[in-house]
């Protein structure tokens, strides 16, 4: 009798039950996801083809809509990932344990590396620095091409993943991401109080 249809990490290729996914699939999906979400959340789909520039206010509004859409998608993904990958792990009691799980394990699962630097003020704010964030690693622009600004929407889905992961582990948090120089990314996690597990 074998109930175990999925195996616990770490996976090895020798295990016949382990299923693998090419991590490029997530890269390609993310590349398409952002423009698609932009088209969907654009308030005037017909006017986007015309050459008239939109007023600044509508652009802000559509940016907000884009952020909410991408973040909500990531939130759901983060919740599912944690449900799957936190099994058979020791119980995480402190908030810092959960943040470490995110930095090490979740980062490894999603982006094939660990976070380069983790800082905290010990009052619920955590700053995660990744010097070469995978979704940004293939991006380049000519000088003055506003690359940092144009890369920003590609960090919103990962933001949602982080928030969903933390929420499912009982930590309500807000997550902001910014890119100061390609391909680095900085995620700032501000936690509210930790909800009791039971």
């Amino acid at each position: 009798m074998s109930f175990e249809s999925t195996t616990a990490p770490p996976f090895t290729s020798a295990d016949p039950h382990a299923t693998f996914l090419n991590s490029t699939a997530l890269d390609l999906l993310l590349i398409e996801l952002v423009p698609l979400a932009r088209r969907l959340s654009s308030p005037h789909p017909s006017s986007s083809s015309s050459s008239q520039p939109l007023p600044a206010t509508t652009e802000d509004a559509s940016d907000d809509a884009l952020f909410l859409r991408l973040e909500a998608l990531g939130y759901k993904v983060g919740q599912g990932l944690v449900e799957r990958f936190s099994r058979d792990r020791p119980r995480m009691v402190e908030t810092l344990d959960v943040i470490k799980f995110v930095c090490k394990d979740l980062w490894m699962i999603c982006w094939r590396k660990q976070v380069d630097n983790l800082k905290t003020n010990h009052r619920g704010v955590y700053v995660l620095t990744d010097n070469s964030f995978r979704p940004l690693s293939k991006m380049s622009t000519e000088p003055g091409g506003n690359g940092v600004l144009r890369a920003q929407p590609y960090l919103w889905f990962p933001c949602g993943v982080l928030r969903g992961a933390l929420a499912n582990m009982g930590i309500e948090a807000t997550v902001h991401a910014e890119c100061t120089e390609l391909p680095g990314a900085v995620f700032k996690i501000e936690t509210a109080q930790k909800a009791p597990l039971v």
Binding site: F3, E4, T6, G80, R84, R87
Partner: peptide, 15 residues
């Protein structure tokens, strides 16, 4: 093993 199997089934459900 029952609990592990239940958890596996639950994970499949929420995913």
């Amino acid at each position: 093993p029952v609990f592990r199997a239940l958890q596996t089934a639950y994970i499949r459900l929420v995913c």
